[in-house]
Amino acid sequence: MPLLKTNSSSLWQSDKLLAVTLKSCGVATGLIVFLIIGFLIAEAIPVLKTTGISRFFTDPGWYPSSNQFNLTPMLWGSLYAMVGSVLLATPLGIFSAVFCHYYAPPLVAKIYRMFIQLLSGIPSVVYGFWGLVVLVPKINEIAPPGTSLLAGILILAIMILPTIMLTADASLSNVPAQYLRGAAALGLSRSATIRGVVFPAARSGLFTGVILETGRAIGETMAILMVCGNIVKTPTSLFEPMRTLTANIALEMAYAMGNHRSALFVSGVVLMLFIISLVVIAEIISSKAVYE
């Protein structure tokens, strides 16, 4: 509970000025999200008015110059890359957090955590570049052309791993110590303690971590743009090139005009809706009482 309150009376004139200044800062920062949503929608409205929503799913393809705006291949691309990378990164991240808490000696755990933090600081364009010059040629040896859904999933998984690992780490350290002592007193083995006591107790934190990483995966642009090949076609195998919603925006925004530009803003709105629903879900999960 903060001790300084704006509504309680203060003898000082300067305090009123301070309150007004701070409030306006708060209003300004709070409004940014609404500004973003507002501008995305405002720019998306022209194409929605002339073509309607259904054409984004029923048009023969994505040929913006001849007014055909089928977004489904990109939607599938985004979805596949997201699901694949989350499936890959989640166990790796959670096991890494388990390692730091229940396996590694303190020093090793500290070094490993630092390693992961380091990983999270590396920009997406560097991962994308590495993927393009190292990973893609390797995949090309197995199944050409190399730039593929698989490359996208692998790079994305590396990028979102720190998110899930660090949130899982934090939620594991919140598991009450008496739970662990209780488990030890019952003579539970290490794996039984982790499965039966730690995971259920840290459940909501782990879910929040998964949701956060999902958000990062769906919003990631540069890395996936650099390794996925960017062909507008729903991928039918892991080795096929594809294009995500985000990559589509980044690639075409530079020269898009009129309805085409507007259609790109529609995909921006779709992304925003997705992120907002994730934030709401995370909010609901983390607001439930976890540790009694």
Binding site: V27, T29, G30, I32, I249, G268, L271, I275, E283
Partner: peptide, 18 residues
């Protein structure tokens, strides 16, 4: 303000670009 900052933190960078 807090909630809107939470959403802002999750906004994908490409949307900031748009």
């Amino acid at each position: 303000v807090r909630r809107s900052l939470d959403v802002l933190a999750g906004v994908p960078s490409i949307c900031f670009g748009l």
